[in-house]
Design a protein around this nucleic acid. Structure first.
Lengths: 227, 227
DNA sequence: TCCTAACAGTGTATATTTGACACCCTCCCC
DNA sequence: GGGGAGGGTGTCAAATATACACTGTTAGGA
């Protein structure tokens, strides 16, 4: 395939990823350390990088998550968020970024992936610092989308482990929505939605009565009527 | 601002627009005649074109709507839909397209804008032909998004004229959802949502009892609980 | 072994929302 | 002034949402 004339190709394409996880009932996002004087000395940003000629934006997003975020993308759910094309969003040259919203269950991460390194680290979303480029904007956008989709789809199935107790699922909802829910009403609702399959196992190793484990009946993200 | 090295700039950027309107209670989309042998002889496509160096994708979308779709974008509501980056979506060269969902009230269009020309025309969505490039995919995506956002936001305010009767508003919902609603329940719901302001005017010139006119209290698209 | 902390699991009563359903009213036009 | 076209209105039953509190089971430590 030919390339278009050079003068029409003024921009480079990038993929940026807002990868969220829930750890200890709190929402975290994966950030990179960024140190690019003069504009962005000693700051942070979302994992991002350039799209290659033989890649779609989505392929680039998963590759970048692995290469730069050090997260194996095979466990990660990813969906397109939006494209950011402000002319000066990168002060060095014209960069148009396709941003992705990504989710991963903390429990599926390896201990290396769970830990912070010199390059990448997990950051509590509610304490996120100011980010480089327009990544503040991207992150807010991603967080907003996450919160709203959680309410009317089974998107949450992508951020909890395969097997979970109802209390764990409820805690995940609570982390994402930032409010507490009533245990009985939550269970009634889940029962009605009919998206969970009870397993024949229980959660052991906790100093309490073992709870029944469940999983989502379908791995797909389904649209549901509320909650 | 500098350009990035040439080898990183392999793609051109395009903006494609799916512009919808409601005419005679039916949903139409603005299409262009496309005749680009050998791949796309004698077919149709969404209005689209290349993004310029000094433009954001959204600026390009509105410019293209005017230049190619012959629709004055100042009356048009536009929001980003998604970015399509399949490597071979345009068989000639790598083109990454940022697609937009756009809405306009039929009544605000000039008679030139309402009419079809050699280049652009209005097409009943439910009878849309096969389109060039991946525009089928883009159109389905846009239609889907339109239908779903209509149900839980006041997005519909962007496709009805400023002033309307409740029956007209109901007809717009029905066109978009493809199903009929009960008049009394619809009015009860609208009343509860508390997003409409009744005017002191009535719709005249119809051969029937004049209906009270309303407008949306806020011109913004608000998230609402259902309908 | 017994106590207790920690969490699992369950039901009811009330308020709110949804959905089905039909008739008379007003105006314009002939 | 009669007819046609659309405007405007209320009730009941069913489904859903919300508020609310106690008993049961286990592991761990005294």
């Amino acid at each position: 395939m030919q390339r278009a004339p050079e003068h029409l190709r003024f921009a480079v394409l990038a993929a940026d990823v807002a990868l969220f996880t829930i750890r200890d009932k709190k929402l975290y996002v994966r950030l990179m350390r960024v140190n690019r004087p003069p504009h962005f000395p000693d700051t942070s940003g979302l994992p991002g990088g350039l799209i290659r000629e033989d890649e779609t934006a989505e392929m680039a997003a998963t590759r970048i998550l692995a290469e730069r975020g050090h997260i194996d993308a095979s466990k990660v759910y990813i969906e397109q968020l939006a494209t950011f094309s402000e002319v000066t969003r990168d002060p060095r040259s014209r960069v148009v970024a396709v941003a992705y919203l990504a989710l991963v269950p903390w429990e599926t991460l390896s201990s290396i992936e769970q830990s912070d390194s010199d390059e990448a680290f997990w950051q509590l979303v509610e304490r996120a610092p100011k980010l480089a480029y327009d990544h503040d904007h991207v992150l807010r956008n991603a967080h907003e989308r996450l919160r709203s989709r959680i309410s009317y789809s089974t998107l949450i199935c992508k951020i909890v482990p395969k097997e979970f107790t109802l209390s764990e699922l409820q805690a995940a909802y609570e982390s994402l929505r930032g409010e507490f829910l009533d245990k009985r009403n939550f269970r009634k609702k889940m029962d009605m939605l009919d998206v969970l399959t009870p397993l024949k196992k229980k959660r052991t190793g906790v100093r309490a009565r073992p709870a029944l484990l469940y999983r989502f009946t379908s791995p797909k993200v389904l649209i549901t009527p509320q909650l």
